[in-house]
Structure formats: C-alpha cells, structure tokens
C-alpha cells in the first residue's frame, strides 16, 4: 500500500511536479506579477505556437459563446481572462504531455466540461451567490489536477480504479483513494495549487470539492465547483475512475438555494454548450 511519505518521496525523486515549459512558466510568472499588458502577454504566448493554438481554440470554445471565430491572440486572451489563462498554463502542458496514458484524455474532457458547467452556473447565479465567473471556471478546470499525479505515480492503483468505475456498489473514486492511500487527489491537487500561489479560496475549493461543507473561505464557490463537477458527470463527461453522479448533488442544490426551475435551466444550458467540446484534442 502506498502512503503519503512513500508517495511524495517517489514523487520528489522523479523531480516532483513536472516543470512547466519555459515560455509557459514565464507566462505564469507575468500573470502573478500583474504588470503585463495583454499585447505583451500575447507576444509571450506566441513564442509557444502549440500553446497559442490551444489558447485560440479555447477562446472559440462554447464557454464564451463568441458570435464570430476569434483569430487574434490578444482578443483571445481578453476573452479568456488572466485567471483561466493561468489554469490553462497549469493544465494544457500536463494533459498534452501525458495524453498517451489511458484515462487522462477522459479526465481532461471531464475537466473542460466541468469548467464550462461551473462557469455557466456562476453566470446564472452570480447575483445571488456573488461569485466571480472567471474564478469559478478556473476551479472547474483544475479541480481534478491531483489525479494526473496519481496516474503518474500510482499507475497500477489507477488502473484498478478504472476497472471499478462502472460498479455502483463501489465507493466513489475519492473515498477509495483515501481508503487505499490515506490521501486523495484533492490533497495532491491542493499541494500543486500551493506551489503555483493560488489564493486561499481556490486552494480551499481544490481541497474540498467533494466535501464543500468543510470549506473555510467562500463556501459558495466550493459548492459551485462541486455542482459543476456533478453536472458534468450527469451530462456524460464522466471521471475515468467513477461514472456515477453522487447523492451530494441533492445537498448542493439545497445549499445553493436552487429551485428545480433553476436547475433545469442550468442543465439545459450545460447540455447545449457542452456539445461543442471535443473529447479528443489534437
């Protein structure tokens, strides 16, 4: 059985969290420093053509409902916003580099649809919940980032997890992780988030997206992320290691004060806009 010291010792021996490509690292640094203009940021992004193409593709995704195709990188960055851009910096290189690992393309699809659903929920309920749409989308995108490291460091365990994904008698993925490893992907994801200076409210959401009632900061945001996660699963963007919607969705709905009519409206919009998100990204 893996335990926390063994896991992180092996993890650190292999170099810890994979380093970001140089240009991406520079982009993250500039976003954190909050002093770069969009034009300069676009010049920087352009240095990594593959990343630039993915940024343009993201700006044209259903998340932003743009009436015309976006082909200008500066405009794409304005549309996406800096927080989600930072999340894309932390996720795209990882999921691209390890896309050959079984389960990761599905996890990336789940993450992108969760980002969309969390964003739609934030757009619809921002007046009552007072949440930032960009922050909500960012959380959706990175909420399961810890799983990437489980796929890398505990591949046999994750293969077993995927074998059980279809069994409704089994515990949810995160509870099985805790039982077997004594920690879960939320814990690892939070460690990753801390390394990249994510603010406390976002760290809280990374840590508690399966137990939003435990969140210390901006609990509504954590509930919203949990809602996006479950709605994404509902509409078919499943986790590779657990394919069911968890009963906590009922509690989340109550906690956020969503009437059935609100939930129906949200679900319809999520189905409609998720149709344009591709399972496979090339």
């Amino acid at each position: 059985m893996l335990n926390i010291p063994d896991f992180f010792e092996s993890f650190d021996r292999r170099g810890g969290f994979p380093a970001l490509p140089e240009v991406i690292s520079e982009i993250v640094h500039e976003i954190d420093a909050e002093r770069i203009s969009i034009v300069d940021l676009a010049r920087l992004v352009q240095k990594d053509m593959s990343f630039a193409v993915q940024i343009l593709a993201h700006a044209n995704s259903p998340a932003y409902n743009m009436p015309n195709r976006v082909t200008n990188l500066s405009l794409a960055l304005q549309i996406i916003g800096l927080r989600p851009l930072k999340a894309l910096c932390l996720t795209i290189p990882l999921f691209t580099r390890f896309k050959h690992i079984m389960g990761l393309p599905e996890l990336w699809y789940h993450s992108r649809v969760t980002a969309l659903c969390t964003r739609i929920a934030a757009e619809k309920f921002r007046q009552t919940l007072q949440v930032d749409v960009e922050v909500a989308e960012t959380l959706g995108l990175i909420h399961d980032i810890g799983k990437v490291f489980l796929f890398l460091e505990a591949d046999e365990f994750m293969q077993c997890q995927m074998q059980l994904a279809d069994d409704p008698q089994t515990l949810p993925d995160w509870k099985r992780e805790r039982k077997a490893l004594r920690f879960d992907h939320s814990f690892i994801g939070t460690r990753f988030g801390r390394k990249f200076n994510l603010p406390p409210a976002m760290l809280d959401a990374l840590l508690y997206h399966h137990e939003p009632e435990k969140a210390q900061y901006q609990q509504e945001l954590v509930y919203l992320c949990a809602l996006g996660d479950q709605v994404a699963t509902m509409i078919g963007a499943i986790h590779p290691d657990f394919r069911f919607v968890e009963p906590q969705i009922l509690e989340i709905q109550k906690r956020l004060g969503l009437l059935p009519v609100h939930f129906q409206d949200l679900l319809q919009e999520c189905v409609r806009r998720s149709l344009g998100i591709s399972l496979i990204e090339t």
Binding site: P168, T233, M234, I235, G236, I238, R243, F244, V245, E246, P247, I249, L250
Partner: peptide
C-alpha cells in the same frame, strides 16, 4: 444517464 444517476 439513468445509470449514472442510480446512486441517487
């Protein structure tokens, strides 16, 4: 979808 909702 109904299968995915079975735990509810």
């Amino acid at each position: 979808l109904k299968k995915r909702l079975i735990l509810l």
